[in-house]
């Protein structure tokens, strides 16, 4: 039983260029409902760009994106993004709003909730990440780990079918990383469909159902974590793992 109304996400043959820079060169990624896919690879390999293409913050030049087997490229991209939560490396909380307002803004404006309803829902989400007592603080007065947990609560409040994590722990002090990873692990075990771009090899290995290694805009290797981490087939993945482990 899943706690979430998760969906299955598929990206097919995604191509994207910025001018003459061919950033994504035919990416395929399939994330089954309720599973976690982690995407690893060196900086500049196109991992973060792939996330932004899959929720259409950037439109692909070519390829298709399917949610529950249906192409979403013809839909209104704003509506697609309401179905996909995203958490960023730099948290990107709204500094001029309180923690609770950060979460209630989209509930009020996009879900049409009343002010009180939205605040109640925001408090409930904050409770889930252990920060209800910070509801009326400003993001700047929270630690990085707390800010990232608020950002996760903000995304979850929209009841997404899929969650994207873009190097969600890379900007955190080492002692704060585990709190955020623990929360992400809870979500994965709760049945959320997740795509996690990460440099945390421990998380990738222990929590994800499938690991995708990207380099220079292509998927070099993909498979179950034990296979990729213990028996990498390609030289590029072997080289990458020996650099990061």
């Amino acid at each position: 039983m899943s706690e979430f109304a998760s969906g299955t996400l598929t990206a097919k043959n995604i191509h994207l260029s910025f001018g003459s820079n061919h950033v994504l060169r035919g990416i395929d990624l399939h994330v089954e409902k309720g599973t976690t896919a982690s995407v690893i690879g060196p900086s500049g390999s196109g991992k973060s760009t792939l996330l932004r293409v899959m929720n259409r913050l950037i439109e692909p030049d070519q390829g298709d994106i399917l949610l529950d087997g249906r192409s979403v490229l013809k839909d209104n991209p704003d509506e697609l993004r309401r179905r996909i939560g995203m958490v960023f490396q730099q948290f990107n909380l709204f500094p001029h709003k309180t923690v609770a307002e950060n979460i209630s803004l989209a509930l009020r404006k996009l879900r049409g909730m009343s002010k009180e309803q939205a605040r109640d829902e925001a408090l409930a989400q904050l409770d889930l990440v252990g920060l209800k007592h910070k509801a009326d603080s400003r993001p700047a007065n929270l630690s990085g780990g707390q800010q990232q947990r608020v950002a996760i609560a903000r995304a979850l409040a929209m009841k997404p079918e899929v969650m994207f994590f873009d190097e969600a722990t890379s900007a955190l002090d080492p002692e704060l990383v585990k709190g955020v990873l623990a929360l992400m692990t809870d979500l994965a075990q709760g049945g959320m469909t997740m795509v996690v771009v990460t440099h945390e090899m421990g998380f990738s290995r222990n929590v994800s159902d499938i690991v995708t290694f990207m380099d220079a805009g292509v998927v070099v290797e993909s498979g179950p974590p034990e296979q990729l981490f213990t028996n990498p087939q390609t030289e590029r993945l072997q080289g990458f793992l020996s650099d990061v482990l």
């Binding site: 993004r81 309401r82 995203m86 730099q90 989209a106």
Partner: peptide, 26 residues
């Protein structure tokens, strides 16, 4: 910061609403 626009759009706001509600006030 451009992350503000990106985060607002990622929640499902249109470009115009994102500017009006989040970017311009800041």
């Amino acid at each position: 910061d451009k992350g503000q626009l990106e985060a607002t759009r990622a929640l499902g706001f249109s470009y115009g609403s994102s500017m009006r509600l989040v970017v311009v006030p800041q």
